[in-house]
Simulated scan of single mutants.
Amino acid sequence: MCKLFVVDADGSLLNSDNKISAANMDAINELRARGIIYTIATGRMFTSILPYAAEIKINAPLICFNGALIKDIYTRKTYYYNPIQPDDAVYTIKILKEIGYQVNLYIDDELIVDEINERVNWYLTYKNNKARVNTVGDVAEYIKRIGKGTAKIYAIGDIKNPKPLDSDVYDELCKKVAVSTSGGGHLEINAIGVSKGNALKTLANMYDIKRDSVAAVGDNINDLSMIEYAGFGIAMDNAPNLVKIKADFITKSNDKDGIAFAINKIFRRQRIIAV
């Protein structure tokens, strides 16, 4: 029986217009009516995802930055925070810049960038992001100066001709950080040990819910760990094959009310189990 339902945002809960469909909203309202705990697990920063979390009235803490932060949207209480430490961040930034990536940092719920440029503007538009932006000149030097880690590094590659990360560079980065992707050839980088799956496990333990009673939905590589952790892991139809083959169920795409379809599948599954 599902007691905890966790959904990714971009490419899953949100359609291509960055909206939550009426069908998805109705299904989420049904979760609440049935007493199921539900929330969002996203790579986004807290302020960026907050309007959507409030819109669906989540009733559990929000998972942000791919699991680096677990925070309550109502009380603002932080239950978990595991940033990339300053030295590891500086090491990673140096490598990323050498191979041409735009580096975004997230500190104190601000987006930290060298300057506003085409790729930063693309990011803000693509994510429909109303985040506070702090231009600091050189993000590595800024990290050294303030002595604070970053919740996540989002490395933006060529937005017109995305390319996969070279395997040697990947191996070098993984000496200090955890590297994933949320699509488009761009990189999601966190502290080692941070993942949506580990955050979901932490959240389930907070509510004393066993993994067999957890359902998780996602559409990309950074969702893989929570899909694998959940007792019922669900992949969106728009997910890559690597995600689909790890899932227990493949729902419709984010532009065809895939979350509503997944929730209805959970309810049908529960009726079968109850018989």
Rank of each mutant, 00 (worst) to 15 (best):
T47A: 13
V120Y: 08
W122C: 05
E118A: 10
V136D: 07
T39Y: 01
V120S: 05
N241V: 15
G258D: 00
S225K: 10
G137P: 03
E228G: 05
A178M: 14
M25Y: 13
R269S: 12
L224S: 03
A22L: 10
D114N: 14
I245Q: 11
T39C: 02
H186E: 06
I159A: 02
D10P: 00
N198L: 13
Q102W: 04
Y101G: 06
P240V: 06
D114H: 08
D237M: 13
K148I: 13
Y154L: 09
A60G: 00
K77C: 05
F232M: 14
M25A: 12
N18C: 09
Y126N: 14
N128M: 09
A191F: 03
L14T: 06
Q270D: 14
K19Q: 15
E115N: 12
A216W: 09
V214R: 11
A53L: 04
A216L: 13
I95E: 00
K144G: 06
T125N: 11
K196H: 06
Q85N: 07
P61S: 01
A27V: 07
N121W: 06
A54D: 10
K265G: 01
K244H: 02
D257R: 09
D87P: 04
T75A: 08
L187Y: 04
K152S: 02
Y52K: 14
L50A: 11
T251V: 04
V177F: 02
D72I: 03
T75C: 07
T181R: 03
A235M: 08
I227F: 00
A60K: 01
I245N: 04
G218T: 03
P240Q: 08
A155W: 08
D248F: 09
N238C: 02
I153H: 07
N264E: 13
L13W: 05
R145E: 14
I189P: 00
S225A: 10
F65D: 06
K152R: 13
M206P: 04
D212C: 11
V136M: 08
Y142C: 12
S16R: 12
I156H: 01
A191Y: 06
